[in-house]
Design a protein around this nucleic acid. Structure first.
Lengths: 215, 215
DNA sequence: ACCCGAACAAAACAAATGTTTTAAACACAT
DNA sequence: ATGTGTTTAAAACATTTGTTTTGTTCGGGT
């Protein structure tokens, strides 16, 4: 075969461009020109733009889901219950472990997640749910066991509250940081912001259940 | 003039379609056909699609920002400090007060907000920041006074954590609710979910400051 | 040396998009 | 009733989009 880094170059370009501008706003021509690849290469290697989008996601979600699954395996085999803090920070650690390339890949990662949610309807969500739904369910079941005596459905919503905070903050980190500088003269790194997030999330998860919903 | 509900009909159709599918994914032709209006009417009344997008936002953000501003006026004039709970629920109340039409407008409202954030770069964000930045700043300053002894920059990030939870959850409410039914057999109303959000957010805001960031 | 299939390049295609243009219909003041 | 400015209607326009087609190049196995 010829130099088959073509596929990788397409994925790299598509990933960053999608994160910057969204899916519909990124044309195949801008992708292929940044990747220094012929236009037809996308349809040749992937078949369609939608499949390319899915491929971008699986490339960074596959190792994440696999790593998370292994941690769940280990926990289930040893039988010892982790703390709530450990369970939450497990996600952060796994995210940080996955990123192999540059500095701002965490932002790219989060922005892609945010886009996947914002662009709710359509092929992508079903695709992600079909592939990664199982691992998420396992994580959720473990969290139900560990969490402080709240019913399942309450915990389900709190997990989504958590994910909203993380994804929203990280995906718009640059903008929020710029506003922060204008507003109170300080800037923060991504790591700082993750450290700020942890106690916020843990306290939120430990909040009492709203009285009139105890069914 | 002729029946000038044309503008309103365009805005109604655009609003719901944008919330469903996003901006780029919604063509002027689908908007005008749902609104039962001629294609050229959009460019005639608004000038361009971008201006239409901005108009959709100002239509529901103007009364929101105005109502919020009046509440801030009242608080500042009386001089009494509201509690953190009151300050947070103030946002919820104002959102619920604004929506004039159908049941699912809250979802539409939140989905539009989420889209505005997801489509970070570009005309929309600057436009919103230019118009509504002032009210947001006032709210922020008040929250700094009320909040439990945390530095400004810490509070700034926590506000964004809050907004992330709310916007993310509400904008994807239907999907999350469907997953909830599949996962643990229960469904929730929007009002239930807002009630669940409140203690989560309040506890998160009251969380201790991460030790290694006390600068 | 030959061949075969994979990889690339260039061009063309059909469809959809935002926008503009032209003309007709309308409301309303004079 | 007439005329004027506003609103709608229909068509056309120029781009841009994803995709397909056609031809070429390259590498390795027999």
């Amino acid at each position: 075969m010829a130099q088959t880094d073509t596929v990788e170059r397409i994925l790299d370009a598509a990933e960053s461009l999608f994160a910057e501008k969204g899916f519909s706003e990124t044309s195949l021509r801008t992708i292929t020109s940044r990747a220094k690849v012929n236009l037809a290469a996308v349809n040749y290697h992937f078949g369609s733009k939608n499949v390319l989008i899915q491929a971008v996601f699986t490339r960074f979600l596959d190792p994440f889901a696999e790593g998370l699954g292994k941690r769940l395996d280990h926990i289930e085999s040893t039988g010892e219950e982790p703390s709530l803090e450990e369970l939450i920070s497990m996600l952060f650690i796994e995210v940080l472990r996955v990123k192999p390339r540059g500095q701002n890949d965490l932002k790219v990662f989060m922005r892609l997640l945010a886009l996947a949610y914002a662009q709710a309807q359509g092929h992508l969500r079903k695709h992600l749910q079909a592939i990664y739904g199982h691992v998420f369910t396992r994580y959720f079941r473990l969290l139900v066991k560990v969490a402080p005596g709240l019913p399942e459905n309450e915990l389900y919503w709190r997990i989504n509250f958590m994910m909203g905070s993380v994804i929203f903050t990280m995906s718009d980190f640059d903008t929020l940081n710029a506003i922060s500088e204008a507003e109170n003269g300080t800037t923060a790194s991504i790591e700082d912001t993750l450290k700020r997030l942890a106690p916020f999330l843990v306290s939120g998860m430990r909040a009492p259940q709203p009285a009139d919903l105890e069914k």
